[in-house]
């Protein structure tokens, strides 16, 4: 049987060419989704809103009232500041569909609370999140391993646990949500500052009195600019490729002090903060814009390939013209 292959004409070349261009353009501007389905539904009524009102009635405010059974009087008292939880914050957090007594003993429903209740052992993150495929992408086990290697590990500081940094009553997903890099930086750095910039909290776990963060970091030019633009963990952890938030906080002697680790094309920021940022930007703005609309400027790291080539070409031409002129001068 005779087989007729379609003849490739000039016209079909053109079609292939245009088709190819379209495919390339589409791939470049395609919005790669980095969020899979939300695990916690954030925009509905919290599951135990009514039940929890009972607890927030006292723990949601600075003052609470109760009826003293002995005197029969209504008493108004100041709530211990460490035990105040903002209901709005709680319901904006990831644990918003919880009932307070999911984690705390149901005996707390009775007031005055039994004093022994305060000694109850609290859950740790892994008690609920460990080994469960639902939470796999959050890397809880890896975070736990990294935490145990870190300077914060209970081997170094017995009282330290996940709750020291993450308040389960208000914890929100920052890195995986629609927040700008700046907001993420502020949020993450505030987590560190809660203790490292607050002697009252710091001394809960240390006898030491720390100098201010600005004094400790006086080797950084423009302290505020650095603190608003990058996260503490950028220099104080070993970057972990698979994690947005590295948890292996290194001893202070091992923190990065060498400027060029960030200020170079091989910037370590690219493997942490900005990896997230560029994925995010590509998702929101398309490939090209993400490159042009760079939010941050890191001297030495933001090199524009096109401008680099252009400047080398200009320099080359100028030098060539000069060499040509020198040759003419010598000949004449």
């Amino acid at each position: 049987m005779e087989c007729h292959l379609p003849e490739i004409t000039h016209n079909s070349h053109m079609k292939i060419y245009i088709g190819g261009l379209m495919v390339i353009t589409l791939t470049l501007f395609f919005n790669f989704p980095i969020h899979s389905q939300e695990v916690v539904i954030m925009d509905n009524e919290p599951a135990y809103f009514e039940d929890n009102k009972h607890c927030f009635q006292c723990h949601g405010q600075r003052f609470y009232t109760y009826e003293n059974e002995f005197t029969g009087r209504i008493e108004r008292k100041a709530m211990n500041p460490n035990l105040i939880y903002d209901a709005d914050e709680f319901y904006s957090g990831v644990h918003r569909h919880f009932s307070c007594t999911d984690c705390h003993s149901p005996d707390y429903e009775i007031y005055p609370h039994d004093t022994e209740l305060r000694f109850e052992e609290m859950f740790s993150c892994l008690d609920c999140h460990g080994g469960d495929p639902t939470w796999k992408r959050y890397n809880f086990e890896l975070i736990d391993d990294e935490f145990h290697k870190s300077i914060h590990s209970p081997d170094h500081i017995e009282a330290f646990n996940c709750w020291s940094c993450h308040d389960p009553h208000s914890y929100r997903l920052k890195t995986r949500s629609n927040f700008s890099t700046r907001e993420i930086v502020t949020y993450h750095n505030n987590t560190c500052k809660t203790c490292h910039d607050n002697p009252d909290r710091f001394q809960l776990i240390s006898e030491e009195l720390k100098p201010s963060l600005e004094q400790i970091h006086d080797f950084l030019p423009n302290f505020n600019l650095h603190f608003n633009a990058v996260r503490c963990i950028e220099c104080h952890t070993e970057p972990e490729e698979t994690m947005w938030v590295a948890h292996n906080i290194l001893p202070k002697e091992m923190a990065v002090r060498n400027c060029v680790e960030c200020h170079s094309t091989n910037s370590r920021l690219m493997s942490s903060l900005y990896k997230y940022q560029s994925l995010e930007n590509r998702r929101e703005r398309g490939f090209f814009n993400a490159i042009i609309l760079n939010d941050a400027y890191v001297i030495g790291a933001n090199r524009n390939h096109f401008l680099n080539v252009a400047s080398l070409v200009i320099l080359g031409l100028v030098l060539l013209a000069m060499i040509g002129h020198i040759i003419l001068r010598i000949i004449k």
Partner: peptide, 9 residues
């Protein structure tokens, strides 16, 4: 600064 490189400072 612009061409900072840890290997060739």
């Amino acid at each position: 600064m612009q061409y900072a490189n840890p290997e060739y400072p």
